[in-house]
């Protein structure tokens, strides 16, 4: 109970965010009630990129130290990243149908999240094709780092080709936050909640994966 305090805090915190997202914040001009997707869709996208980054960090650590528990962490982060990438794509697509009148039109944001989905899918396809744990860890880590090296190009190339209609509350040409203070408060609060949720899911997944590895190793002995 005592070590779980932050989990209960997250439970309450997320509930407060949900209430605030629906009742406390005003709507943005031109988006109407769909503004509220902001507080759930954007943090999911954030978790997707965070997971991708963390997976790359643990891949580097694995290649440097060759200890399998780093590989487990890289895999766990990628798994959660994949789930949140799917959630981001689906919620974004539903929202796009309402605002742009089509589920999918290769907007730069749609394209980049789709690329992340493909990279995650390829990563797991590679993992499933290798039997030996050491080799799997090694090759998956290399692939993950290669993917990490190409992401800046995606970020640079894609927006140059298509014009985006995606609303830009934070990242825009004049680098100012065009957001109501109440919206910003809930928005940042939601970022915090999603990050803690990611941490919880991540530790849980790591525990399960290391148990699995532990049992398998003991059974082999």
């Amino acid at each position: 109970m005592r070590e779980n305090w932050w989990k209960y805090l997250l439970g309450v915190w997320m509930a407060v965010i949900i209430v605030a997202a629906f009742l406390f914040t005003p709507t943005a001009k031109g988006l109407g009630q769909t503004t509220r997707v902001l507080y759930f869709h954007v943090p999911s996208a954030w978790v997707t990129t965070l997971a991708f980054f963390i997976s790359a960090v643990f891949s580097v650590l694995y290649l440097m130290r060759h200890q399998l528990h780093y590989d487990i962490r890289a895999e766990a982060a990628a798994q959660i990243g994949l789930i949140f990438a799917i959630l981001t794509t689906v919620t974004g697509s539903i929202w796009a149908k309402e605002i742009w009148h089509s589920y999918w039109n290769w907007d730069p944001r749609e394209t980049s999240i789709f690329m992340l989905l493909l990279i995650y899918a390829a990563y797991f396809a590679l993992r499933s094709a290798i039997e030996d744990p050491e080799q799997r860890a090694r090759l998956a880590a290399v692939y993950s780092l290669l993917a990490f090296a190409t992401v800046p190009f995606l970020v640079f190339v894609i927006p140059r080709i298509y014009d985006s209609l995606h609303p830009d509350p934070l990242i825009n040409p004049d680098r100012k936050i065009h957001m109501d203070v109440r919206m910003l408060r809930v928005f940042l609060g939601s970022f915090g909640a999603f990050t803690v949720l990611f941490y919880w899911l991540f530790t849980l997944r790591v525990k399960v994966l290391s148990l699995e590895q532990h049992v398998l190793r003991k059974l082999e002995e």
Binding site: L139, V142, L154
Partner: peptide, 25 residues
């Protein structure tokens, strides 16, 4: 990478495409 895995043929395009997108574009 794929030379060291089983199921080589199918994996090659799957692994290359997401990383080659900036090049193709």
């Amino acid at each position: 990478i794929i030379a060291q895995t089983s199921n080589r043929g199918a994996l090659f395009a799957v692994l290359t495409f997401p990383l080659a997108v900036p090049v193709l574009r």
